[in-house]
Nucleic acid binder design. Sequence first.
DNA 1: AATGAATGAGCCTTCATTCAT
DNA 2: GATGAATGAAGGCTCATTCAT
Lengths: 219, 219, 219, 219
Amino acid sequence: MTESSDAENKRVRSWKQDPEAVRADILRAAKTEFAKHGLAGTRVKDIADRIQTSRRMIFYYFSDKEGLYRAVLEEAYKSVREAEEELNLDGLPPIKALSKLVEFTFDHHRQNEDFIRLVMNENMLNGQYITQSTSLHITNTKVIKQLSRICEAGVKEGVFKPGLSPLELHWQISALSFFNVSNRSTFSVIFGNELFSEDGQVTMRQHIVDCIVSSVLAK
Amino acid sequence: MTESSDAENKRVRSWKQDPEAVRADILRAAKTEFAKHGLAGTRVKDIADRIQTSRRMIFYYFSDKEGLYRAVLEEAYKSVREAEEELNLDGLPPIKALSKLVEFTFDHHRQNEDFIRLVMNENMLNGQYITQSTSLHITNTKVIKQLSRICEAGVKEGVFKPGLSPLELHWQISALSFFNVSNRSTFSVIFGNELFSEDGQVTMRQHIVDCIVSSVLAK
Amino acid sequence: MTESSDAENKRVRSWKQDPEAVRADILRAAKTEFAKHGLAGTRVKDIADRIQTSRRMIFYYFSDKEGLYRAVLEEAYKSVREAEEELNLDGLPPIKALSKLVEFTFDHHRQNEDFIRLVMNENMLNGQYITQSTSLHITNTKVIKQLSRICEAGVKEGVFKPGLSPLELHWQISALSFFNVSNRSTFSVIFGNELFSEDGQVTMRQHIVDCIVSSVLAK
Amino acid sequence: MTESSDAENKRVRSWKQDPEAVRADILRAAKTEFAKHGLAGTRVKDIADRIQTSRRMIFYYFSDKEGLYRAVLEEAYKSVREAEEELNLDGLPPIKALSKLVEFTFDHHRQNEDFIRLVMNENMLNGQYITQSTSLHITNTKVIKQLSRICEAGVKEGVFKPGLSPLELHWQISALSFFNVSNRSTFSVIFGNELFSEDGQVTMRQHIVDCIVSSVLAK
DNA sequence: AATGAATGAGCCTTCATTCAT
DNA sequence: GATGAATGAAGGCTCATTCAT
C-alpha cells in the first residue's frame, strides 16, 4: 500500500494475462539487476520496480530470489552459446580462423558486459548455482570442437606446432577477453585508462590475436 | 551462537588494551569475510564472531562497514605491492627475467585468492572504493618499471621486437594469472577441472610463460 | 516485555486485513507517544507495543519514523481545524462573540494537551516538518475570518476601537490559551499550582476573556 | 581512537588544568545543545565536540547526561533571575512601572531564546528535572513582589481596579512574551511571518503592553 | 585531575517471503 | 492466473556509559 506505488503503474503493463511475457520481462529486469549488484547486492524490490510489477509476482513465477538468479544464469549462458553457434569458421585457413575466433570472443565479451558480470558474481559464489544447473554441463563445447578442428588443420598444414591443447587455447582466449571487461575498473584506476580508450581497445584486440597466434605457430 | 555468548569468549582475547592489535585482528577477519562474500554479502556480525569481539568494536575502529571494506582493500593492495618489491630481476637476461616475472605473478595470484576475490568484488562495484582511496593511485608502477627495463634490454640485445608496451604486457600477464584464480569455478564446471589439477596448473603456468614470451620475441 | 511476546497478542487484534483501521490505530498510538516524548524521545517500539503490532507494520504504512511523525502532525492540525469549523458565532453581538471565541480556544487547548505538546515539540524542531506539509499552509484561516467579522461589526457598532488586527488578536488569544497548557509544569513548580486548580482555571479563563475584550474596547 | 579526533584538538584548549573553566565551558556548550535539541535529541558527543573535549570529561564532571541537563537548567534559571534583579522600577508611577516590566519581559524573552527553549523542553518532560532542583523552588518571586507593589500603588492611586492578582498578571505577561518566542516557527508557517518582522515585533510589543495595562485599569 | 580504550543495550530500518483471498 | 496485506528475522549503526590506568 505505502511501500510501493505498484497499484498505479500496473495499468501501464502491456503483458497482462500473458504469462510468458511476464516471465521474460522479469528475467530481463533481473538480469540487469543481478549483473549490476550481484546476488546478495540485488534487491527483489528493485527488480519489481524496474518493470512496474509487484514483488509478489516474482515469487509467483520464480519461487524465490535464488530461483530467479538461477534462471537468469541459465538464460544468459544459453544466449551466449547461441551466439557462438552463429560463428562460422569453415573453410578458413587455420591462422585466419583462429584470429577470427579470438576477435569474435574479444568483441562478444566487450558487448555483453552483463553476462561477464553475472559470471564474475557466480565465481564469487564459487559457481554453486551453475553447478546445480544441469542444463549447463553437457554442452558449451562447440568452441572446443571448433578449436580442435583449427588446431588439427594447422598442424596438418605445418603452420601450428603439434601437441596443442584446444581447451587450454580456449582458456587463454577467454582469460584475455574476459579480464578486459571484468577488471577494467580497478585496472584503469591504478594504471590509467589509456588501454580502454577506443584506440587502446583496437590495439589491444590486435595484440591479443598476435599473442595467441604466435603461441601456436610452428617455429 | 548468539551474540551474548561473546561474554565468555572475551576472556580469551589476548589483545585487550592494544588498539593496533585489535585493528589488525579486525582487518584480518574482515578480509576473509569480504573475500568470501563481497561487500553486500558480508555480515558485520560474522566478522565480529570470527575474532570473538562485538560488532560495536568494528564500528569503533572503522566507523562503518564501508570504512572497514575500504581499509581492507587498501591493506590488501599494500601487501601485494610489498610482495612485488621483493622480486629481484636485476642482472637476468631479458627472456629469463620476463619468464620469472610471469611465473611470479602466476604463483602469487594463485597463493592469494583472497586478494583476487577482493579485486573481483571491487570490480563488481565498478571500482568505486579503490577510486576513493587516494593511497592507491600513485604507486603500483614498480611492475611497469621492471617490465620497461626488461623490454629495453631485450630490444637492445635484439631478442625482443621493438615497439613493445610494458603496460600492455603487464595487462596480459595479469589477465592470464588473474583469470586462473577468479574464473576457476565456472570454467571447471563447464569444461571440467583438468586444467586445475596440480599437473594441469604446472603445464598451464609453463604455457602462459611461453605465450607471453613468444609474443615479444623478435622473429 | 520482549518483542516476541507480540505473537500472542496478535491474535487479539480486530483490524486484520483492514488497512485503514491499521493506519488509524498506528496514528493514534503514535500521536500519544510523540505528544509524550517528542520526535527524538519516542521509541518506535513503544508505538508498536501500544497497539500490539510489530515495528515492521509501522514502516510498512509510514515508511519511517519521520513519515509517521509528519502524518501525526497533519492529522492533529486537521482535527483542530475541524473543531474550529464547528464553532458558530453568527448573530452574536461582537463582545459576546469575541468572549465565546476566547472561551472556546481556552477550553479546546486545555482539552487537547496532546495537540499542544505536538506543537511544542514541532517548535523545538523549528517547524521543519510543518513547513514540509503543504496541506497545512493554505487553510487555518477560518479563525482569522471570524475575528475579522467580529472586529468589523464591533467597530461599526462603535464598541470596538478601530484599527484592530484580527491576526494579532488571534495571536494573543492563542498565546494565553496555549501557554496555559504548555507551561503549566514549570510555572507551577516555581509559583505553585493555585492557578491550575479547577477554581484557578475558571478564574483565569474569565480573566483572559476580560483581558482580550478590554484591549479591543473603544474608550 | 577512531570515533573522535579529540586527541589533536585537545592541544588547543586554553583551560587545561582549570577545573572551573572546564565546567563552565561544558555547561555553556551543553546549554546550546540542549536548547537546540532538547534532552533526548541532544548527543553527548556533540557537546564534547563543540568544545574540543572528550565525552569522558563530561561524565567526569557531571556524572551523566541528566546531571548535566539539570546543571544547565539551574544555571539558566539563575541567570534569568539575576537579570530580573537588575530591573529597577522604584519611584515610577504604576502604569509606567507596569509598562516597563512588560517591555522588559518581552525583550528579555526575545533575547534569550536558548532559555525559552530549555523551558519548552523541560515542559515536554513535565518539569521533572526542575521539580528535583530544590534551588529553584524558593526564590523566583521577586517579580511577584514587584508586581504586588505596583498593583498596590496603582489601586491606592485609583488608576488600577482593585482585586488584581499579581501572580496572574505575571502569568499573562509571561504567556504573551514566552509564546512570542516559543511558537514563532509554527505560527509563522501557518499565518505568515508579518508578526515577526522587526516592525511587527515593535507593534506587537506595544500591543502587549496595551493589553496588559488596559486589563488592570480602573474604569 | 584526567584520559584512552572499550562496551551493553537498544535504535531505526530493511530484506525476502508468506498469508489469505 | 493473480494480488493486496502482512511479517519474522536480521541488518547496520548509535547511544550513553564504564573500565582501567
